Computed example of a mutant assay.
Amino acid sequence: MRKRTWGFVASGLLVSLLLAGVVSGFASAHPDGLESALREGCIVDAEGAVTGGDCPAQREQEHEIGGPLADYGVTGIADDTLATGLSGVVGVLLTFALAGGGFWLVRRRAGQPTGDGDAAAQPTSAAGVG
């Protein structure tokens, strides 16, 4: 990979980490579009809890498995802003690692010769002469 490409990837990762780690702590506590759609027809109290009506959100339950990053936070950290930021950073790093590994595997596989002697698989020079 060229130096310019590495700089682009590194700057994209840095911006993603800053957004996930810092900006996510300021995200709105109000329901997003999906939650709002699921709450249509519900009766909601002042704290945002569903108390009645007829809507899909009435069947909402806690996730059975849970996990260290459940509910947009890191389990065991009392400060919600810090827990949300760390959860975002971990998510960005995991996504970057999985995507980077996938791209590496595809690139590595695409660079292997086919072994069938096909002329189309042979690289050509800048002048177009193979």
Rank of each mutant, 00 (worst) to 15 (best):
A29G: 03
R39E: 07
E47T: 08
G48D: 09
G76K: 10
A29E: 12
E40R: 15
L86Q: 08
I65P: 10
V44E: 07
V74Y: 10
A29N: 07
H63K: 02
G66M: 02
G48E: 01
T84L: 05
E40N: 07
G67W: 04
Y72N: 15
C55F: 03
Q61W: 10
T84G: 01
G76I: 11
A83K: 01
C55M: 13
L82V: 14
G33C: 06
E35I: 08
G53K: 06
T84Q: 05
C42K: 04
T81V: 01
E35L: 07
V74L: 08
G53P: 03
V74I: 04
P31F: 00
G67S: 04
S28I: 03
C55L: 11
L34G: 04
Y72G: 14
T75Y: 01
T81D: 00
G52Q: 11
L69R: 13
T84D: 05
I65L: 06
G41Y: 00
I43E: 15
D80L: 15
A49L: 02
T84E: 05
A49F: 11
R59D: 02
E35M: 12
R39A: 14
L34D: 12
E64P: 14
G53Y: 05
V74N: 09
H63F: 14
A57R: 09
D71F: 04
G41D: 11
D32T: 13
A57H: 02
E40S: 15
Q58C: 02
E62G: 12
V50E: 00
A83D: 05
A57G: 04
A27W: 12
D80K: 15
A83G: 02
T81Y: 05
D71C: 02
P56M: 01
R59A: 01
A78I: 06
A49M: 05
C42T: 11
G33Y: 05
D80M: 04
S36T: 15
L69E: 08
H63L: 09
E64A: 15
T84Y: 05
P68L: 03
T51I: 15
V44C: 08
L82F: 14
T75F: 13
D71L: 08
E64T: 10
F26C: 07
D71I: 11
L34I: 11
H30W: 11
A49S: 12
T75I: 09
H63A: 02
L34C: 08
C42P: 01
P31M: 00
Q61P: 02
L34M: 06
E35G: 09
I43F: 12
G53H: 10
D32P: 01
A78H: 06
Y72M: 14
T81R: 08
T51H: 08
G33H: 01
D54P: 04
D32C: 09
T84R: 04
L34S: 09
A78W: 06
G73M: 02
T51Q: 06
E60S: 09
A57F: 07
S36A: 15
D80F: 14
L86V: 10
A78T: 14
A37S: 15
L86G: 06
C42I: 11
A49T: 12
G85Y: 12
T81A: 07
F26M: 14
G52E: 03
A57L: 11
A37V: 15
V50T: 04
A78C: 10
I77A: 09
T84F: 10
C55R: 09
Q61K: 12
G73P: 00
